[in-house]
């Protein structure tokens, strides 16, 4: 079985982003970029399925500027076999990303597509589900466990209030939650090896997909600042303040 994994280049999760003074977006000049953490979990899951002999090939795809080849190389250093980059400098809606991925699915015919449940920049949580609708595939979102059983995939999902397990026909879509696995670190020799793995570059036009945005960002502003309060000296004082000043208990 072939597994397709998509990865996104985003601001490193440790960076506290700043809104540009002109309100057009966040300042991404000179900030550290990295693979979206949920995408890293997706790559790890694909590689583990290959190591277990369930998958025979892991293909990684990323859509974005030339620099996202770095994240494809990282995924290949983690164990993916080959990469596809769809190059565009335009910021894409999740719908456009899902349409491009649907074309890749059509070409590659994977048995399983694994994606991160959301990217930590746009926080949309849409692409995997949209890809499901566009390809007619079932989905197991927010996965904390993935098992292939008798020609189907069983996905345990993190839902409000607990866990839900579904059985999906293949091919299927899985989006990762944080407890699915703990991604490994790529070693330096594996980074060197990854440089020699095949990486195909394409453009949205090659797939004939209309990527014009449906959503226009009119303004980006910082959130309302919360003022720090006071430090209390004791539990007594804390309880007194909560009762008499804040009146919340």
């Amino acid at each position: 079985m072939k597994i397709l994994v998509s990865v996104k280049r985003v601001v490193d999760f440790n960076v506290k982003v700043r809104v540009k003074p002109d309100g057009t977006g966040v300042d991404l000049g000179n900030v550290k970029m990295a693979m979206n953490p949920f995408c890293e979990i997706a790559v790890e899951e694909g590689v583990r399925l290959k190591e277990q002999g369930i998958a025979d090939e892991v293909v990684v795809v990323s859509i974005g500027p030339k620099a996202c080849q770095e994240q494809i190389r990282t995924a290949m250093a983690l164990g993916a076999d080959r990469g596809i980059q769809i190059e565009t400098d335009q910021e894409l809606d999740s719908l456009a990303v899902a349409k491009l991925l649907a074309k890749v699915v059509e070409e590659e015919q994977p048995g399983l597509v694994i994606l991160g449940k959301q990217s930590i920049d746009s926080d949309n949580n849409q692409t995997g589900q949209m890809l499901g609708a566009l390809t007619g595939m079932p989905q197991g979102t927010f996965a904390s466990e993935v098992n292939l059983v008798e020609g189907k995939v069983e996905v345990t999902r993190e839902v409000d209030g607990g866990l839900q397990t579904l059985s999906l026909n293949l091919p299927a879509i899985v989006t990762t939650d944080l407890r699915l696995n703990e991604p490994r670190y790529a070693s330096l020799p594996n980074f060197m090896k990854a440089k020699r793995k095949p990486l195909d570059t394409k453009s949205p036009a090659d797939f004939g997909v209309d990527i014009s945005p449906r959503l226009k960002t009119l303004k980006v502003e910082p959130p309302a600042e919360r003022q720090a309060g006071i430090i209390v000296g004791s539990v007594d004082e804390l309880v007194e303040k909560l009762k008499n000043e804040a009146k919340v208990i």
Partner: peptide, 29 residues
């Protein structure tokens, strides 16, 4: 397109939503 996680309605086609873990609020149309 889907507009996820809106926190305010500005008009019938314009909404506010948090991005970057709430470190920025985008107004999208």
């Amino acid at each position: 397109a889907q507009i996820s996680d809106i926190i305010a309605v500005e008009s019938a086609d314009t909404f506010k939503r948090p991005i970057y873990a709430g470190n920025a609020i985008a107004t999208v149309q």
